[in-house]
Design a binder for these strands. Structure first.
Length: 225
DNA sequence: ACGTGATCATAT
DNA sequence: ATATGATCACGT
């Protein structure tokens, strides 16, 4: 098995590549790719995601769009426990705090990113050495009507808060399936936002995250069928 | 025990 | 500074 040298030409090629790495350990995949394996993720938090990107042929780099733009697919690795339940929330995208005036759910980055996701569940329990953690079964997901409605509802609630200049009163407790949380290198990083009077303020950058309960439902729904 | 808020590495 | 890849770790 070899690292692909180009992006997958179509959806079936992406799916084949994903199925091909299922069952392998992170150590095996890293060795075959000539990538060093960290002892833990304290200083290597995105390591698994980048390893899987390499194996699937995603273009490296940080673009505000999908990982496979020509296929309209976003890649997400998801750390799971021995029962197949998510261990972490899932980052979706940066949250604009100075809202484009005509933004709607339909035109939002969240909707765009979540239209089609290739989920790659990976064993993530800290007791398992990084090299021994295995890739579970990857699968493509598109939100069904109910899931889409939940996401839209949360996006609209959170976006309205931002639009009303109430970013700083939003906590991670808002949102049923998706939350807004700080997303930065440290608590000292500040970006522009608006207060309730429309004045520019400085606040911590935020990102949208999917709650574990929601990604757990996605896994359950997929694997029960 | 768990989720929230904080944090780490890297590219542009 | 923005944005990607996320997990860490403390307070509740």
């Amino acid at each position: 098995m070899q690292i692909p040298t180009c992006a997958p030409a179509d959806l079936s090629e992406l799916e084949s590549r994903a199925q091909a790495i299922a069952g392998f350990s992170l150590g095996e995949l890293a060795d075959m790719a000539g990538i060093a394996i960290p002892r833990d993720f304290k200083r290597h938090k995105g390591w698994t995601g980048q390893l899987i990107e390499t194996w699937l042929g995603a273009t490296a780099g940080s673009k505000p769009q999908q990982d496979f733009p020509e296929l309209g697919v976003e890649l997400k690795t998801l750390p799971i426990n021995q029962f197949g339940q998510p261990l972490e929330t899932t980052y979706v995208c940066y949250a604009p705090l100075l809202l484009p005036p005509l933004i709607t759910w339909q035109t939002s980055n969240v909707k765009n990113k979540l239209q089609c996701v290739l989920w790659v569940p990976v064993e993530g329990e800290r007791q398992i050495p990084v090299a021994e953690r295995r890739i579970a079964t990857p699968f493509l997901w598109q939100p069904n009507e109910a899931q889409n409605a939940l996401l839209q509802q949360d996006w609209e609630e959170l976006t309205e808060m931002i639009a009303l200049g109430k970013v700083e009163s939003v906590t991670a407790r808002h949102g049923d399936v998706m939350q807004l949380r700080p997303k930065a290198a440290s608590g000292q990083v500040l970006t522009d936002a608006l207060d309730a009077e429309g004045n520019k303020i400085k606040t911590r950058p935020r990102g949208f995250y999917l709650r574990k309960q929601f990604t757990s439902l996605i896994l359950q729904t997929h694997f029960q069928q």
